[in-house]
Design a binder for these strands. Structure first.
Length: 749
DNA sequence: TTTTCAAACCTTTTT
DNA sequence: GGTTTGAAAA
């Protein structure tokens, strides 16, 4: 037995040393899956004499890729640099940049991010004269993306379209793809699809990669979608040396097309697959783990497994209910302060929440208390307006082929080039099938433009001058020149101070990223080039920017926390309607609720030592204050695991209806988080908020009602449960739904 | 063409 | 509640 693998436990060793044929590693949270993967790579290279470049490791985020990269480097040394460690998207970009010309695309294609997609779709909807009220670009794009994730192309979608909406979307889909191609651009989904298409149309290319990647490993396999599955299957080929690692209980990206069946039926897709379960958790205390197990147990259709640990029991899980979201934020932050005063460091703490919108209150308190924090998520750095603007300038200087980029900055700052002028240029460009910038260079030929001509001329001259300068300048000089010469920098002068400061910060951040890129090039002895820098910037996300060493509290969504761990975790907003969210409750779709429960499981298992659950009695949501009850997920945690600090008493309440019982737990008396008792309003008499819970609705069984989203329907059942009425409605269009009167806001017709 | 103001919409989660 | 979008006015 090699000494290398002796550092693993028995199961881990079994997984790391099984190298030939398909292998499914079911790795529970904190069971050391990255460790197994890295050791497996080391084993392949060290013991099986596999060349590093024959190994491919795929992850979902750049962060995970970076983490794996550094761990492999540490374990194996310089030889590891030959291993491809990459995200799905980055891998596809790498392949496509090399060979997409075989499909008739230019190898310098642009990658459109969500923002670019929306801009493009909006203009398509407009030019095709389609009702933008009925067809919102967001939902159209969502529909197209989900079609792409199921590998339904334009033609097939067209054929399958069965109603008016689908028929219109099929036309939009078609036009969208045409425009992308005209702009030499791919969206995120296309990156994967094009790679498959490349493999299908050019078997020699596929074979080349199959030869190269003799051993493939995929992390977070439970989050793969259909396209990714096909991609992996194609690459694995007949040899099938495919090792996937995942945890069906941590599948939380269904909305993005992740198909949990990929992992559940791995053994059918890859006959003869070996399955190894990793159930020993090295991360958390047993109290935390027991809570996680108790919650996830309520899901059906799981792969059977139970996490265990020989870590001690640890502290019980804390549960605190507050009057409102603000008090919740104040208390969580003051709790952190107190613990830091007692010797903890800021980086031990993470504040997690369901939606990004919840971050604001915590931020306010952290700023007020002068606590260093890092907000992860929200608006992606590369999606910020000023960053995109400057990148758009650089793109226009670089090629001018990217119409979205050109349109973005043509009138920023104001140059007197309005919509009318821009559209006429675009029209001319289309008629003569030339690029938009080219059309602008020929402005004198465009008869329909008179007034804007001089303005366009000076814009063209400015860009051309910058192009000339670009040839002789370093990239950083060019960057600075662009800010000044375009007048973009001056636009910050008449902004208010805090906003201008933030934006300028972002721009200097972008500048330093450019500097990083140049240094990187020097290390690899490449020549830094603008197109090279611009090309893959769309793939970088905020999550990748978490620095390891810095000492700050981390704020992020539960989704963002996957794959990370923290000493002390606050799961906030643990309320029915927030988490699990509205949508998953009212839809009546058990699947959706299970997805939320998996998210809860992910959240709980992030904590190593201490877990605090917080919730509020009422909370401001979309501008109105509403009453909330403790999350049903909290009710699924055994009381024995929750802290009972004398002053806190919980009580299991009897209830009639078992379909919904968030009233399961009632807190009789409450203390604030620092232990001081707080005056409490009498129980069972909630204040009347804007939506009074428990008042009888203004309709009865048999009445016709209207729902904001589901349309009209007939009330078939009304049951009084807890403090609210559970109403069953048979909707004309979407069928029977169960919902709570206070949430559903049904209106009698 | 640009500015201003009211209205709509939003809140799931992201590569 | 905050942000974005549309129409009307300047």
């Amino acid at each position: 037995m090699s000494s290398l693998l002796s550092e693993l436990n028995e199961r881990q060793r079994e997984a790391a040393s099984h190298t030939e044929g398909p292998l499914l590693i079911l790795a529970g949270a904190g069971s050391g899956k990255t460790r197994v993967l890295t050791y497996r790579m080391a084993y392949l290279i060290g013991e099986k004499d596999v060349a590093p470049w024959n190994i491919l490791a795929i992850t979902f985020t750049n962060k995970a890729a970076g983490e794996m990269r550094s761990r492999v480097d540490r374990l194996i040394g310089p030889a590891a640099s030959g291993i491809w460690v990459s995200t799905f998207h980055a891998m596809c970009v790498r392949i496509l940049r090399r060979t997409i010309d075989r499909l008739g695309f230019d190898r310098s294609f642009a990658i459109y991010d969500t923002d670019d997609q929306r801009t493009l779709m909006r203009s398509i909807i407009k030019t095709m004269n389609i009702d933008s009220k009925m067809f919102k670009e967001r939902s159209v794009l969502a529909e197209i993306s989900s079609a792409k994730n199921q590998m339904i192309g334009v033609k097939e979608y067209e054929r399958e379209a069965s109603d008016y909406r689908e028929e219109v979307i099929s036309r939009l889909y078609k036009q969208y793809q045409m425009q992308l191609e005209a702009n030499n651009a791919l969206d995120f989904d296309d990156l994967l699809l094009m790679t498959i298409r490349l493999f299908n149309t050019c078997p020699d290319v596929l074979e080349e990669y199959q030869q190269r990647f003799r051993y493939i490993m995929v992390d977070e396999y439970q989050d793969t979608n259909r396209v990714q599955f096909e991609l992996v299957r194609a690459l694995a080929g007949k040899k099938g040396n495919l090792c996937v690692v995942g945890d069906d209980d941590q599948s939380i990206y269904k909305f993005r097309g992740a198909d949990i069946r990929n992992i559940l039926s791995f053994e059918e897709s890859f006959p003869g697959a070996k399955v190894v379960k990793l159930e020993q958790n090295y991360r958390s205390t047993s109290a935390i783990l027991d809570a996680a197990n108790a919650v996830i147990r309520n899901n059906s259709g799981r792969k059977d497994k139970t996490l265990w640990t020989d870590n001690g029991e640890g502290e019980p899980i804390q549960l605190h209910q507050y009057e409102d979201g603000n008090e919740e934020a104040v208390s969580v932050v003051s709790d952190i302060r107190q613990r830091v005063a007692e010797g903890a460091s800021y980086d031990q703490f993470a504040i997690l929440y369901r939606t990004n919108a919840q971050s604001r209150l915590f931020e306010e308190q952290l700023v007020r208390r002068g606590i260093p924090y890092k907000l992860v998520g929200g608006v992606n750095f590369y999606a910020r307006r000023e960053v995109k603007d400057v990148l758009a300038y650089l793109k226009t200087i670089e090629s001018g082929r990217d119409e979205i980029a050109l349109r973005r900055i043509i009138n920023v700052p104001r140059r007197g080039i309005g919509d009318t002028t821009i559209n006429r240029i675009a029209e001319y460009a289309r008629d003569h099938s030339i690029g938009m910038f080219e059309a602008m260079e020929r402005i004198s030929d465009i008869k329909t433009i008179s007034r804007g001509k001089a303005n366009v001329d000076s814009f063209v001259l400015m860009i051309q001058k910058l192009r000339d300068q670009a040839a002789t300048m370093t990239l950083l000089e060019l960057y600075d020149t662009v800010l000044e010469a375009t007048g973009y920098r001056d636009t910050f002068d008449d902004m208010d101070d805090t906003e201008a400061e933030e934006r300028l910060d972002n721009l200097s951040e972008l500048r330093s990223k450019l500097a990083d890129y140049i240094i990187e090039c020097e290390e690899e002895e490449k020549v830094p080039s603008l197109p090279d820098f611009l090309q893959d910037v769309a793939l970088v996300t905020d999550l990748d920017l978490l620095e390891e060493e810095a000492d700050y509290v981390v704020l992020m969504t539960l989704h963002g926390a996957k794959g990370l761990e923290f000493e002390q975790v606050y799961m906030t907003g643990m309320e029915d309607g927030i988490f699990p969210g509205f949508m998953s409750i009212t839809s009546g779709d058990e699947e959706e609720l299970e997805e939320e429960r998996r998210l809860c499981y992910v959240g709980i298992t992030r904590a190593k030592r201490r877990l605090t659950l917080t919730c509020a009695r009422r909370r401001m949501l979309r501008g109105e204050t509403r009453a909330f009850r403790i999350s049903r997920f909290v009710g699924e945690i055994p009381l024995s695991l929750l802290e009972d600090r004398g002053a806190l008493r919980y009580e299991k309440r009897q209830h009639e209806s078992n379909s919904y019982d968030p009233g399961d737990i009632t807190i009789r008396q409450r203390v604030s988080i620092d232990g001081k008792p707080v005056h409490l309003q009498p129980l069972n008499k909630p204040k009347q908020f804007s939506v009074p819970a428990g008042t009888k609705p203004a309709y009865n069984i048999g009445d016709r009602v209207k729902h904001r989203k589901f349309g009209e329907g007939t009330v078939t059942e009304m049951v009084k449960g807890g403090r609210d009425y559970e109403v069953t409605v048979d909707f004309d269009t979407v069928g029977v739904k169960k919902m709570f009167a206070a949430f559903a806001k049904l209106e009698p017709i």
